[in-house]
Every structure is written in C-alpha cells, then in structure tokens.
Design a protein around this nucleic acid. Structure first.
Length: 524
RNA sequence: GGCUCGUUGGACUUCUGGUGAGGUCGCUGGUUUCUCAAGCCAGACAGGUUGGGUUCGAAUCCCACACGAGCUGCCA
C-alpha cells in the first residue's frame, strides 16, 4: 500500500512556520515513498470567507515547493477536501456510533456538565461524568425533549483499561481510559467536531501516516476510540515536537510577536524585513508581516530552499555534521526515526545563515533577477528593464557579493539608482568623512580632475589611478577613500571603491563629487 | 490539581555504556582589507550544578526528585 500523508490547515489566512515544518515532514514521507501528500482544509468552525483566508496558505505552499496531490484547487478521488462540505459523512459516522452504542445523546445543559466537572476539580478527584442526562433509549430521549432539553452527541468512552499505541517517534505510549472524558462529537445544531471529522477523513482519504505536532498526542486515544468503534484500521501515528520560541521552550505563537521583539536576533530579522518593506513603500500588515509566518520571508526576498533546509534541521538530523540538503537529498535521507523527541527553538540567526548560504550559492544572473524585482517594486528601475540597467544590477550584485543575504538587501544600494542630484547623504557619515578631515574636500576635488581625464574607467585602471594619486599627494589610501565613498554613495559603508566608481561611471562620479563639494562648502 | 511528553554549552544537533564528547550558528580575541560584510586563525562555553541504583566503567540503563512544555473545550 502506498504511503498517504496529509496536512490539515485551518483557513486562517496565515501559514505558520511550525506548521510548515509539520507539512514538510509529511511531504517528505509521501514523496520519498512515491505516495501522496494531501491537503485537507479544516474549516468546520470557520465563519469567515474560506476562499480568501485559504489563498495565502496555498500560495505559501506553492512558493515553498510543497506540492500536494489531492486537495483544494486540484481535487482528487476522495473529494471534497473541505471539512465544511463533508458534514454528511460525519453525521453518518455519528449515527453509526450511536447505533453501535459507542456514543450517546446527552441532554445535559452546558452549565450542568460544567458543574460536575468543577465539583470534581474542587474535590481534587478525576472527573468522571455521571451520564445523568444520557439517553440511550427513545423513551429517555423523549422525556428529556419533553422537558425542553436538546442534545449533543457524546462518545461513550471506556472506563477501564488503557489505550496503548505505538508512535513512530515516541515509541509505545499508554493512557488510562478512565481519564478520557466523554467528548462531544456532534453539536446540538448537528454540526460535528474536529476529532470525529478528522478520524473520518483520515479513513476516507486512506491516510496511512498521521504525522502531526505533539500537542495532538493526548488527543490520540479518543481518536483511536472513534476509529476502532467505526471499524476503521488505524493509521500509523507520529507526533513530532513543536517549534518553540527563540530562547525558550514555549510553543512559537504568531500572537507573541511583541514579546519576541525583545529577543535580539528575532528583532534583527524583523528589522531587516521592516527596512526592506519601508523601501518598497509597503506598510507592513502587522497581521502577516511577522517572522513567525511564511509570508514575511516571501515579502523580503528569502529563498524557499533556504527556509525548507533550515526547517528540516529543526528536529531532524542525518548525522553529526551534514547541514545542507537539496530536495533530492532530503528525500533520499529523511526518516522519522531520526526526528528528535524534544522541542526545538526557532533560531532567526541560523535561518539567516542558511539564507545567506543559498543566496550566495546562486548563479549571478539568478541572484540579480531576484534583486531586480525588489528594485522595481521600490520604483527604482523601470519595467520593462532597460538593457543597460540590467547590466548595472548584475554588476552591483556581483560587487556586493555576500552582503546581499536576502533579495531585498539590494535596496541598501539604492543610491546607485537615484539621479545624481537626488543622492541622499547620511549626516553622520558626511560629517565624519568630509567635514571633519581638513583636507577631504581639497583631495576629492583634485581627484575629480584626475578622473575627468583618465583614459580607462574600469575598476582595475581606477585603482592604479588612485594609488598614483595618493603617492603624488603624499597621502595614504585611507585618507581619501572614505571621503570618496561618502561623496559617491552617501554612505560610510559599502562594497569596494573601485567597483563603485566603475559602476557609477565617469559622468556620475564627477557630478556626485561636485555635489558633495557644494554641500561641503555650504556646511562651512 | 490530574495525565502525557521532554531535559547536552546562548541556539540547532551528534554520541551500539568505554580515550580530554564532535559539528554548525552565535559569542570573545587576533589577522587581512579602502569602510561594511565576508575570509582566515585562535579561544571561551555542555550532559537537570539533584539524590540513589545497576556496572570494572554511566550523558547513555533503572528509580526518585526538580524543572519545562503540551493536553485536560459544544476550538483545531
């Protein structure tokens, strides 16, 4: 039998990084066995517009390259794949459980049921429901109904023995049945709840491996009870640890972003994203612009492969040293028995490291193409791209080298794309490199005369020119080069000066130096 | 409170009971360079600062304790 796995997102509009890792493990397991990976939409509780809230999730999966064989937009042999459209299946299952005596109609009022539970809690004993309002015969039901009560369907859970099962990651686990309450599987209005729906769907979709986060481990006994009562064959279970917050073992949560921003590395990641967003002119949506969510990374120019590789290693390893895995290698080596049992903290810095590795492993053309998209979004490059501009972007990307970690980082070099007269100078840099040094203005002015007539305007030729210039002036390279950098780029930091000059070209260099000299004059 | 799971340097991890526990990220220092990155070299930092047991020998196996997390819904 082929391996069939699933991931079941709720249509919330956002794809959580922890969810992606769970999906990844499912995807790998199916793909490496030549099986199927299924996307099921858990929208039993959804009031909102599902289509709208689902789109970002599907987009996220596509962007990450986690393709699904059955599910939304592509259908499949066991349609539909939306739980909201499968109510009749669940109701039939609930009826079957009722008929076989594995479930009962419960006519208690929510307050009555809660009161029993609270009493038990107060007396510090396990809560075992009295089943006082249980109706097993139609007369009992009629009596309760006559009293104006309505019912929900509850599981009639065993009260003896243990639920034992084997988990592919945790090994053998056991729960006492008596501590499993009589869970509700169907509401008064006839709609059904998650546990019933999930079990029915997993069966009807022929799911062979249920791989999901550890928080579902304690839900497993009730699901096993449902499955066995319905005569289903059990899938294999594998409960993977959740992804924890940076620097803690708490579950990573999208809502705690404010708190995470106190973490230095998380903040750094967020800030680099925010800077890019600002330059692209996007006001970040606080709901989705969040490093806990995949969309954040898409917006600022991460590579899907980097994210996937990072997430793979969050809870799984091949050996003591291998870190970089292509998709093929992942598929070849992944196995559930090397998934760790303890939770792993999300480390923004390490994710950034993977991103840098992947970005700089890219051929120049591809890297430049990714960067170009950001320049266009920032309105710095026209669409269609003029040929010369494309060249220039490539030159800049090459010169910037690994200073570009995510594609949006190209915007740190935006000054190469603004007209000379609109170049912005960083005040501090201007002060330190042009105003304060006594000869700065004089030197760049002199050098400006040199570059006006230098025959060859290439990085190599300019290096010789400038070094000669320093010699005749009796100065060190450092005495002029910083002033030059600020004059030409407005910034104190950047890539090599000779590349910078060559990329800007003679005319720009001259006019930018003149502009800096004007500003310098006005400043004094 | 109960149940379940977990516990190695700041983080991710490796370690059929057997030399000073290995790798990656980060950190510190040095070095290179026109700045910033990157690079190179070196360094600090670990087995729950718990108690007991098994053993010639324990991070590894067992028990206890401590700590952490998840679950304990007419949420998923």
């Amino acid at each position: 039998m082929s391996v069939r796995t699933r991931f079941a997102p709720s249509p919330t509009g956002y794809l959580h990084i922890g969810g992606v890792r769970t999906a990844l493990f499912n995807w790998l397991l199916a793909r490496q066995a030549g099986g199927q990976f299924i996307l099921r939409i858990d929208d039993t509780d959804a009031q909102r517009n599902v289509a709208e809230a689902l789109q970002p999730i599907l987009d996220g999966f596509r962007w990450l390259g986690l393709d699904w064989d059955e599910g939304p937009e592509i259908g499949g042999p066991y349609e539909p794949y939306f739980q909201s459209e499968r109510l009749s299946h669940y109701q039939a299952a609930a009826q079957q459980l009722l008929d076989s005596g594995h479930a009962y109609r419960d006519y208690s009022l929510p307050a009555e049921f809660a009161a029993e539970r609270e009493t038990a809690e107060k007396e510090k004993r396990d809560f075992v429901y009295s089943r006082k309002w249980m109706a097993e015969t139609s007369e009992q039901a009629a009596n309760f109904a006559a009293a104006g009560r309505s019912f929900v369907v509850r599981l009639k859970m065993p009260r003896e023995g243990q639920c034992q099962f084997h988990d592919l990651i945790r090994g053998d686990v056991a729960f006492d049945w008596v501590r499993e309450p009589d869970h509700v599987i169907q509401r008064g209005d006839g709609t059904c709840l998650y546990h019933l729906a999930s079990v029915v769907d997993d069966h009807e979709y022929r799911i062979t491996h249920v791989v999901r986060a550890i928080e579902h481990l304690s839900n497993t006994p009730r699901q096993i009870f449902i499955a066995q009562s319905l005569g289903y064959e059990l899938p294999q279970y594998a409960h993977i640890p959740f992804v924890a917050e940076p620097g803690s073992k708490n579950k990573l949560s999208k809502r705690k972003i404010e708190q995470y921003l106190n973490n230095k590395e998380f903040k750094r990641l967020y800030q680099s994203g925010a800077d890019i967003a600002a330059k692209v002119g996007v006001i970040p949506d606080p709901n989705s612009f969040n490093p806990v969510l995949v969309d954040f990374y898409r917006q600022i120019g991460f590579l899907p492969d980097a994210i996937i590789n990072y997430l793979l290693l969050l809870g799984w390893s091949l050996d003591d040293k291998t870190e970089n895995f292509s998709r093929e290698e992942m598929l070849q080596h992944f196995s559930l028995d090397r998934v760790v049992k303890s939770e792993a903290s999300f480390d923004p810095q390490k994710l950034l490291t993977f991103q840098g590795r992947y970005m700089n492993g890219l051929p120049l053309k591809q890297k430049a193409k990714l960067c170009l998209a950001f320049l266009q979004r920032a309105g710095l490059v026209a669409d269609p791209v003029p040929c010369a501009t494309g060249e220039r972007v490539q030159q800049i990307v090459a010169a910037a080298d690994d200073r570009i970690v995510m594609a949006g980082d190209i915007l740190q070099f935006e000054n190469f794309f603004v007209p000379d007269q609109q170049l912005q100078y960083e005040d501090k840099a201007f002060q330190k490199r042009l105003v304060t040094p006594p000869r700065a203005g004089e030197l760049i002015n002199e050098f400006n005369l040199v570059i006006a007539i230098t025959p060859e305007f290439t990085a190599a030729a300019l290096e010789i020119e400038l070094k000669n210039f320093c010699e005749t002036q009796g100065i060190e390279l450092g005495d002029i080069i910083h002033a030059l950098r600020v004059a030409l780029t407005g910034s104190a930091a950047g890539f090599g000066m000779f590349d910078t000059m060559a990329i800007l070209g003679r005319a720009s260099c001259i006019s930018r130096i003149n502009r800096a000299l004007d500003k310098l004059e006005r400043a004094s």
